[in-house]
Design a protein around this nucleic acid. Structure first.
Length: 224
DNA sequence: CACCAGGCAAGTA
DNA sequence: TACTTGCATGGT
């Protein structure tokens, strides 16, 4: 099936997902800092495990930039153990905090007052923050218009012929950002819908389920 | 038991 | 540039 991917089709797909699942109100997290920590902890990790780690941080009153920054790597690692890769992730959190204090005196407000593209470049220069983590931070904690691309995005949209599985991050991101209206709320909920869809319908080694609303939409369109 | 999860960096050729 | 490997827990 050949799909000519125009912007209106991407919007139609989004509307179908939103109608079925409603507004998902991402990111799950009560503060900007919690969102940032979650974005780092969820790298290649099930969110349920990240929740346990964040709960540990909250119970230890460690979920603030200053408390976390003062803690030793080993102490942080112990708290975030359920999230997996706890040694590297403890270092990555510290790298971000060193950046936050070094550049902005520990103020997220100052950090997010920077120009979006400029801040993105600076985040990417922090060890442990790659494109997906940077965009998650910018969009969900900073309210800046960057479309987040993850494994589900590539998997789902390559299986439907919109992009290639081998396309790099920036290329897939451009595919969406050049075809969608630049709206925070849309970028926010679209990515949330994709992850939700992936969790329910699209595992790594299994084909798309025929009950997947996206499959249904595209099949129906193909027949008409 | 095997496989998977909302990546990333560092090493090799 | 394009692979490969290490990192690690908890759920199915």
């Amino acid at each position: 099936m050949i799909v000519t991917a125009k912007g209106k089709e991407l919007l139609r797909i989004y509307r179908v997902l939103n109608r079925k699942f409603g507004n998902l109100d991402w990111w799950p997290g009560e503060s900007r800092f919690e969102i940032i920590v979650g974005a780092i902890l969820t790298q290649n990790t099930a969110w349920s495990n990240v929740e346990k780690a964040i709960l540990n941080l909250k119970r230890a009153k460690a979920l603030s930039p200053d408390r976390l920054f003062r803690m030793s790597d080993a102490a942080v690692a112990r708290l975030i153990r359920p999230a997996g890769y706890y040694n590297v992730k403890a270092r990555r959190l510290k790298c971000f905090l060193r950046f936050l204090y070094g550049e902005y005196h520990g103020s997220l407000g100052k950090m997010f007052s920077e120009d979006g593209p400029r801040l993105r470049e600076k985040l990417l220069a922090v060890n442990g923050i790659g494109p997906e983590t940077a965009d998650s931070i910018l969009l969900y904690a900073g309210g800046k218009p960057f479309f987040v691309v993850d494994a589900y995005t590539k998997r789902i949209f390559s299986r439907h012929g919109f992009v290639n599985e081998s396309d790099d991050y920036e290329s897939v991101q451009r595919f969406f950002m050049s075809r969608l209206p630049c709206r925070i709320g849309l970028f926010n909920d679209y990515h949330a819908q994709i992850v939700n869809l992936g969790k329910f319908y699209c595992k790594r080694s299994k084909p798309l389920c025929s009950a997947c609303p996206l499959t249904f939409l595209l099949t129906r369109k193909n027949l008409s």
